[in-house]
Write a protein that binds this DNA or RNA. Structure first.
Length: 927
RNA sequence: GCCCAGGUGGCGGAAUUGGUAGACGCGCUGGUCUCAAACACCAGUGGGGUUAAACCCGUGCCGGUUCGAGCCCGGCCCUGGGUACCA
């Protein structure tokens, strides 16, 4: 009987479905293990061979854990809201829900063919009202809570109101967007509207006028992580800064906890580093500068308060609110022109000329609070409105940006720090500023002579004492803008009364997405929901017109999988207590600053409310590498329809043309298929080498336009899902990027056939012996059991596949068909190649699924070796090997080596200076 | 610019973490089987050198530590990814 993979795979996929093999439930008799894949956005293009890489890895791990006795939660679902379906709807009028449904169906078919062990009864879709019910619900909770900095957690708005009523807000330490202080009496005197307006400054989900990334092409705002290089990540459209009233989530309140949490989780250092940079904690001081002839103060944030004596000017962001007040009449026009110019530039233009130094003096002077010196105030676009206070004190001697600015505008530079043993020099002669924190203060009054680090703490103490400022920690992490002026997203459970937002009662959820006639903004520029009929509460209050962004639905999906059908709560206490958190999360590194920050924030919030038992949602996280495409090229001779083979191309003037990799096998072009590929090649002529047309190749991104996309369905048809699974793993380390080259797949396919043949005799009949395996056979299988277990636990699946190949090669050599050996082999292979494993398992006479068996243990007794092969080297160069008993002492080994005639030969009658014996491994003789 | 990975045969990649570099697979060469092909099997395959061997060279480059370095240290070059005026 041949290895008929198509029949076998079909049979077992049906069996699994029929028997609900992968359906799991809470089972308190077993330890839980939660393995999660980042759920996909179901795009219209379907899966290519790169997508399932991480899914295969997590599936192997899940199956392994199950064999090890764990109750494994391994779910899958869809991040079903998103721009492409909506863009398609705009073009064609087809409802995005329909597009999404079609795409999901296709994804599901493709996924099913690969043989994953997902419990599909737990599937979630973010666009399903039963699912987004809980996305909306979480939003309501955020609206109803604020972040108490003292307790470092979310607390209810009612408790905050109680404090306001009792003592106003002077003692409240909360993450909020106002610095207005009020008393209890004031609070009580306010109208409901005024109170609501004040509370919006405290809520974790709040509505506020903010500087946003506006993308007019998409007609919506974007989050920081959705913008790259000044254009939208999806689509590549230009993005400009704009002030708009938007919903935001106060993610920044959790900055410190998001940072601290990183130390408690098992993620790669590089990913943690990306998050640390994104959170961007910096310690320093907030210092108030006076303004000459004005009672205003300008608050600046600096990480180098030690350099206060070196501040020679100040710079405000062009958007800074004090600019218009402080600018003197004679500079007014220039300043306004400059501001106008800055506003007109897109983010991208700004980034294109970061090195261009621009700015304007505003005519006013700030007063250095510590020296009393008057220093000019400038505006410049190198100071960002969004960071710190949007104003800086410039210390050109010790900050490279200030230095460049001072040089350009010929502003004074004063040195206040010298390197350890150096003397002060004239900054006018400097090529660059001295930014390092190594050194000693000079020209610095109070802190003169101090080391930088002591100077910092000493000056902070001083300014706090004199009430000139205070020590402060700043974060780069911004609040997340949560409104999108789009249709295909979760509606906000929000309505407006007197222009102020109120949330719906929880009993009214889900607030379902209404139907609209066109998926475009309204004529008067309202978001698409402005077209919906009766989009208002029963009382006639209008609903919010924006929808939520992509990260809303993906922020708590891992919790929903624990209890996906629960329509009373997001997740039951019981389910959460059992499944707790994700033990292993596998996904792409592109979510480092978006999803992985937002969902950690979301989870921490739910944790504060006592709704989930873990502060961090993802215990261990692995980023699978990208599968790159391997493109093939043909070479057309200029102005002809003749193609010349790769190695002959240098004799001609040729154009390199991408050719579909599916027409090429081992870099040899299938000429007939090529001719049929496109009409223009129908009459093509070829100059061959060795009767073949050899194509060139290059590693590029896998994409349609490079004609290098390989579809898993095609591979499965030709070689089967088990071969695909093994080959994806065999390609290289999981976390590395590597090119996909279908050529190599034949090796793993051969391996599976060779494995199959172990079970059959020359006539093709099943032939399994019940004899006891001999020591050689035992050694082979037990060393493989050990290796596979070790490899799986460190996610080294590529070396596992090699180990299986070596094992089968050895067993073939030994002509081993012993039941015990083959059973063990089938079991350890089953996480990798589940279909063939099920088939072989049943051929071995078992009547239950291999997934219900136990992972075999390694019996070390079979691995003990009687002899060891020693490499004998002279001055580090290995000259010969020698087999010696494994238990031989070092001295005896040395003696044996020294009497060997080959040693005598290599010594050339010299006396060895030293002999090093590493037991069981090597002997090195130093001559 | 800064941060993080990483540079090993024609290719994808191994190397027990300082102990025989190139496992395993692809490709290639030769052979067996076949009318032929496919499949399968056997042998070879880092470079130089030799009839064959001996031997020499070899993990991006230069230097160091060590009995011994792909692995550790210092400096440099290159590739990929992230990030970008964050005070």
């Amino acid at each position: 009987m041949d290895y008929n993979f198509s029949a076998i795979e079909k049979k077992w996929q049906e069996y699994w479905q029929k028997n609900k093999t992968y359906k799991i439930d809470i089972d308190t008799n077993k330890p839980k293990f939660y393995v999660l894949d980042m759920f996909p956005y179901p795009s219209g293009a379907g899966l290519h061979v790169g997508h399932p890489l991480g899914y295969i890895a997590s599936d192997i791990y899940s199956r392994y854990k199950r064999l090890k006795g764990f109750n494994v939660l391994h779910p899958m679902g869809y991040d079903a809201y998103g721009l492409p379906a909506e863009q398609y709807a705009i073009q064609t009028g087809q409802h995005p829900a329909i597009t999404t449904d079609i795409n999901i169906k296709r994804y599901r078919e493709q996924l099913d063919k690969i043989g994953f062990s997902y419990d599909w009864d737990r599937e979630v879709r973010t666009s399903d009202p039963k699912y987004y019910h809980w996305t909306q619900w979480a939003f309501i909770q955020m609206f109803k809570h604020y972040f108490n900095k003292q307790s470092q957690k979310a607390e209810s708005i009612e408790s905050l109101v109680a404090v306001f009523e009792k003592e106003g807000n002077q003692n409240v330490q909360a993450a909020c967007s106002t610095d207005q202080i009020f008393s209890a009496d004031q609070w009580k005197s306010w109208s409901q509207n005024q109170q609501q307006e004040m509370l919006l400054n405290y809520r974790l989900a709040f509505l506020a006028e903010t500087q946003v990334n506006w993308c007019s092409e998409l007609g919506t705002v974007l989050a920081n992580d959705e913008v790259k290089d000044g254009v939208s990540v999806r689509g590549g459209y230009p993005v400009v800064q704009k002030k708009m009233k938007q919903w935001s989530l106060r993610v920044s309140a959790y900055a410190q906890r998001l940072l601290d949490g990183l130390d408690t989780i098992d993620w790669t250092d590089s990913l943690k580093e990306v998050q640390r940079n994104w959170i961007g904690r910096s310690e320093g001081a907030s210092v108030n500068f006076g303004v000459k002839g004005n009672d205003k103060t300008i608050e600046v944030f600096t990480t180098r308060p030690d350099t206060l004596y070196g501040a020679t000017f100040m710079v405000l962001a062009p958007e800074h609110e004090l600019v218009s007040e402080l600018v003197t009449p004679e500079y007014k026009e220039k300043v306004e022109n400059y501001i106008h110019w800055v506003k007109g530039r897109t983010e991208r233009e700004r980034m294109a000329d970061v090195n261009k130094i621009t700015g304007e003096f505003i005519g006013a002077y700030g007063i250095n609070p510590i020296t009393g010196n008057e220093i000019p105030i400038w505006i410049a676009d190198y100071v960002l409105a969004g960071y710190g206070t949007g104003a800086i004190m410039a210390v050109p001697a010790h900050d490279s940006r200030d230095f460049a600015f001072a040089k350009h505008f010929k502003l004074p530079i004063i040195q206040v720090v010298v390197k350890a043993d150096d003397k002060a020099t004239d900054p006018a002669s400097w090529e660059e500023s001295y930014d390092s924190k190594e050194g000693r203060m000079i020209n610095s009054g109070l802190i003169d002579g101090l080391e930088v680090k002591t100077a910092i703490s000493s000056i902070i103490n001083y300014i706090e004492e004199k009430k000139l400022g205070y020590g402060k920690i700043n974060f780069r992490l911004r609040d997340a803008i949560f409104s999108r002026q789009r249709y295909w997203g979760e509606p906000f459970p929000v309505y407006y009364k007197n222009d102020l937002p109120y949330v719906l009662d929880e009993s009214e959820l889900p607030l379902e997405l209404p139907e609209i006639d066109k998926y475009l903004p309204t004529e008067d520029g309202q978001p698409p929901l402005g077209r919906a009929q009766n989009w208002e509460t029963a009382e006639g209050y209008p609903y919010e017109l924006s929808t939520m962004p992509g990260f809303a639905g993906s922020s708590a999906y891992y919790l929903r999988y624990m209890d996906p059908k629960n329509n009373q709560e997001l997740v039951s206490k019981e389910a959460n207590a059992y499944w707790q958190d994700v033990d292993l999360y596998i996904g792409g590194t592109e979510h480092a600053t978006g999803h992985l920050i937002y969902s950690r924030f979301w989870n921490k919030f739910l944790f504060d409310l006592g709704l989930v038992c873990k502060d961090e949602p993802f215990k261990k996280l692995i980023n699978q590498g990208m599968i790159q495409g391997r493109s093939n090229f043909v070479y057309r001779i200029k102005d002809s329809n003749t193609f010349v083979s790769y190695n002959l191309r240098s004799d001609y003037e040729v154009t390199e043309i991408h050719v579909d990799v599916n027409l090429v096998h081992h870099d040899v072009l299938d000429i007939e298929k090529f001719k049929a590929w496109r009409a223009e090649f129908n009459q093509a002529e070829f100059i061959l080498e060795d009767n073949k047309y050899i194509c060139g190749y290059a590693v590029e991104k896998m994409s349609k336009s490079m004609y290098n996309v390989v579809n898993p369905d095609t591979i499965i048809e030709q070689y089967g899902a088990d071969t695909l699974r093994l080959y994806e793993m065999f390609l290289g380390p999981l976390e590395d990027s590597k090119p996909w080259d279908t050529s190599g797949i034949e090796g793993v396919h051969r391996f599976l056939r060779k494995l199959w043949r172990l079970f059959f005799d020359a006539n093709g009949s099943l032939n399994i012996s019940n004899e006891t395996p001999n020591p050689g056979e035992q050694k082979t299988i037990h060393k493989t059991i050990k290796k596979i277990q070790e490899d799986i636990e460190k996610f080294s699946f590529n070396t596992s596949v090699s180990a299986f190949m070596i094992c089968v090669n050895e067993l073939s050599e030994l002509k081993c068909n012993k039941r015990e050996v083959l059973s063990n082999l089938t079991l350890i292979l089953s996480p990798f190649a589940p279909h063939i494993a099920e088939e072989l398992w049943s051929l071995l006479g078992n009547h239950t699924s291999v997934t219900d068996a136990d992972f075999p243990g390694c019996n070390e007794a079979f691995l003990v070796e009687a002899t060891k092969t020693y490499a004998v080297s002279f001055n580090g160069k290995v000259r010969f090997t020698l087999d010696l008993p494994a238990d031989m002492t070092k001295d005896a080994v040395e003696k044996e080596v020294m009497i060997d005639e080959r040693t005598t030969k290599w010594l050339e009658e010299k006396t060895p200076k030293k002999v090093i014996v590493v037991p069981g491994k090597i002997v090195n003789i130093v001559v």
